[in-house]
């Protein structure tokens, strides 16, 4: 019961954060909305006994990613409220249809069964501790872990290539 209450509270927080992001005029508010959603999700992870994931969620998302976002917002200088202006009605309607439709479809599709077997959590003893996760990660998933090196290399090289403007460099642009 207590779990349910916690869940409901943070689910509401997550949704509220999401709605804030959707509607906030000021990008900074939107970022804050997203941030709260992420925290809420981290709480969910805790509820699901995925402690490592919860920790990483807080560190990477709330810590790194959102900071980066806020930084860029400041850098570009769009931290003012922006009018929605001429956003056409059809766009709004379509968005509503798509989002609600998507959600409704999913709920409808899974109205009986979302997951195989019982609806209740099958293995409450599964604990996403560092040890458990590490065993899996560095056991079966080692090669994948290593492969993510490429991704990170790309991220580094790509960011440099895009954002690094040494003085007087000509890059073929006209």
């Amino acid at each position: 019961m207590a779990e349910a209450i916690v869940f409901i509270i943070f689910a509401l927080v997550a949704i509220a954060g999401g709605l804030t992001m959707l509607t906030a005029r000021n990008p900074v508010y939107a970022a804050v909305g997203l941030l709260s959603t992420m925290f809420a999700i981290a709480i969910m992870y805790v509820l699901l006994d995925a402690h490592l994931v919860a920790a990483v969620q807080v560190i990477i998302y709330a810590g790194a990613v959102m900071t980066l976002f806020l930084f860029v917002i400041m850098l570009i200088g769009v931290d003012r409220a922006q009018a929605y202006g001429d956003r056409p009605l059809i766009q709004k309607a379509m968005t509503g249809v798509v989002a609600v439709g998507f959600f409704a479809t999913l709920v409808l599709a899974g109205r009986e069964v979302w997951v195989t077997g019982s609806d209740a959590f099958g293995t409450p003893d599964l604990n996403g501790t560092i040890e458990n996760v590490a065993k899996e990660l560095f056991g079966n998933w080692t090669i994948v872990f290593l492969a993510s090196v490429m991704l990170l290399t790309i991220a580094a090289v790509g960011t440099i290539a895009l954002a690094h403007f040494p003085s007087g460099e000509e890059d073929g642009a006209s």
Partner: peptide
């Protein structure tokens, strides 16, 4: 729900 909101 969150996914749909993201899409929106």
């Amino acid at each position: 729900a969150l996914f749909s909101m993201g899409a929106a």
